[in-house]
């Protein structure tokens, strides 16, 4: 469904992503793991057109999206939950969710999806009228995921949904991610928490200094001695 070939990202002279190739199949959850600064966020940003790729191509559902306008990415069906959540702080929770459905005009189905999001995250329903900037970090992460779901995407890109959250909150968020995946959503998951990411995903890619150095079934990566040493703290 998502095909990334030879993707490169550079900031000025610095190569953050050096020609990486990977893919995500329809209905699959794939983890992209790696240390700080490995280039994971840069990869997602290039796919979502927040950044221009310095080279390579991105195809989605057979269509080349490497150079489409940034605001058209979501119309293709790709929703990014950005690193650090990126909620609109002075919009209410309800307005943030409405922004997620900005490209849609099927009011009836939007209402249905809103119910679904509130089903996943009852806390958001309670906070509907509150300004997003006043939510806790965990609530903001819920909102960012809920907002992405409101676009009714074909694929979710999640950038470190566990970042800065207490273990119990991480559990809650990942329960929802699993539930969404169980509905057939295609997901590319970026995580520092490699163990959690690999336990949740079917396949994984390991990224180091801008390159993919390992890939395989999530279970195999979990048992790989190099992965265990570098990312699982063993």
């Amino acid at each position: 469904m998502l095909e990334v070939t030879g993707l490169r990202v550079a900031y000025g002279g610095i190569q953050a992503v050096r020609s990486i190739t990977f893919h995500v199949n329809e209905g699959e959850m794939v983890a992209l793991i790696g240390a700080n600064g490995a280039g994971k966020t840069s990869t997602l940003k290039a796919i979502a057109r927040v950044l221009d790729a310095a080279g390579g191509d991105v195809h989605f559902c057979g269509e080349k999206i490497t150079r489409i306008a940034p605001h058209d990415v979501i119309r293709q069906g790709i929703a990014l939950v950005p690193e650090g959540r990126g909620v609109f702080p002075r919009l209410t929770v309800a307005e943030n969710l409405a922004m997620g459905a900005f490209v849609r005009n099927d009011a009836v189905d939007i209402e249905k999806d809103l119910k679904m999001v509130f089903g996943y995250f009852p806390r958001l329903k309670e906070r509907e009228a509150q300004l997003a900037g006043t939510l806790s970090g965990g609530e903001q992460q819920m909102l960012a995921i809920g907002r992405a779901l409101m676009s009714r995407p074909r694929m979710l890109l999640l950038d470190e949904p566990s970042m800065g959250l207490a273990p119990i909150m991480v559990q809650k968020i990942f329960e929802v991610i699993r539930a969404v995946a169980a509905q057939g959503m295609t997901i590319l998951l970026i995580e520092q928490n490699a163990k959690l990411a690999l336990e949740t995903s079917q396949r994984g890619y390991v990224m180091e200094s801008g390159e993919i150095t390992l890939h395989g079934a999530a279970g195999d990566l979990l048992n790989d001695p190099k992965v265990r040493a570098a990312y699982l703290g063993e």
Partner: peptide
């Protein structure tokens, strides 16, 4: 209005607003 919401969202975070499909 929808336009107004897009304007406020863009003012607060133009990058994320464009991820939501707003043409800045």
């Amino acid at each position: 209005t929808r336009l107004g919401m897009a304007m406020r969202a863009t003012a607060q975070n133009p990058q994320v607003a464009s991820l939501m499909g707003v043409n800045s």
